[in-house]
Amino acid sequence: MTTGNRIRLFLLREVEHSLRTRWFLTNAAVFMAGGVLLVVAGSSGTLLAGHRGYARALAGLAHFAILFVPIMALLPASASLAEERENGTLEYLLAQPVTWGQVFIGKWLGVSVAVVLALSLGYLASASVSVFRGVPSSLVLAIYAFLVLLSLVFVSLGTVFSALSDTRSRATAFGIGCWLVLVVLGSLGVLAAFIRWGAPAELLAAWSFFNPVEAFRIGVMTVLDPDLQLLGPVGTGLVRRHGPTAIALGSAFSLCLWILLPILGGRWAVSRRRDGV
C-alpha cells in the first residue's frame, strides 16, 4: 500500500469522526451567526457608504475570527492524537503497517479538512451577505484564504501539542495556553509593551510577522483597504514602506511557515518519544 493510501485512510477516519461529533456543527453555526451579525450590523451602522462601509464590516468579522478560529481549530487538533494515546488506540494503530509520519500527517490532514469545512460553512453565510451587498467577490475570497491559513496554523499547533502530550486534557491545556499567548498576550500585550517602551519599528514589524495572529490581521486589513486606518501604526508603516501587495503576500507566507514548521518539528519530536507511542 502506498503512503498516500495510508494517509488517505487516516484522513477519512478523522473527517468521519469530526462529522460525528457535536463540535463540527456547533462551530459552523457559531461562526455563521457571529459572522452574519457582524457583517449586517457593521454595514448598517456605518457612516461610510459603499466599499469602505463593507470593508469595515468585514474587518469586524476578521477580528471575531481572530478570537474564534484559533479555538475552533486548536480543540479538535489537540484531541486528535492525545485522545488515541490516552485510550490505548494509538499503540494499536502504530502496530499496523504504517509509520508515525503517516499517522501524524493523516491526522493533521483529517482535522484540517474538518475544520476548514466547518469554517467554510460558517463563512458561506456572511460571504453571501457581503457579496449580495456589493462587496467584490475577489475580496471575500481573499479573506476566506486568510481564514483558511489561520485555521490551518492552529490545526498544526494543536496536532503538535496532541502528539507530544500523554493526555487529551494536557494537550488542550497547551492549546488554550497557546491561544492566550498568541491571541491575547501576543497580539495585544506584547505590542502594547513594545510601544510603551519604545521598541524600534523594525522589531515591532518583525514581531507582527512572527506572531501568526498578527500576520493574519495585517494580511486581511491590507487586502480590505490599506487606507482604512485599521492596520495600526506597524501595519501602516509596513504598507507605506513595502506596498500592500508585498505585505499581503508576506503575511500569507508567514502563515504558511506557521503551518509547515510545527508539522516538521512535531513529526521529528514524536519520532523521539521514549515510549515509541
Binding site: N87, G88, T89
Partner: peptide
C-alpha cells in the same frame, strides 16, 4: 505481524 493488545482500542464508529 498480527497484533492483539491487552486493551481493545476505543474506536468511534
Amino acid at each position: 505481524i498480527g497484533y492483539v493488545p491487552q486493551r481493545p482500542p476505543h474506536f468511534d464508529g
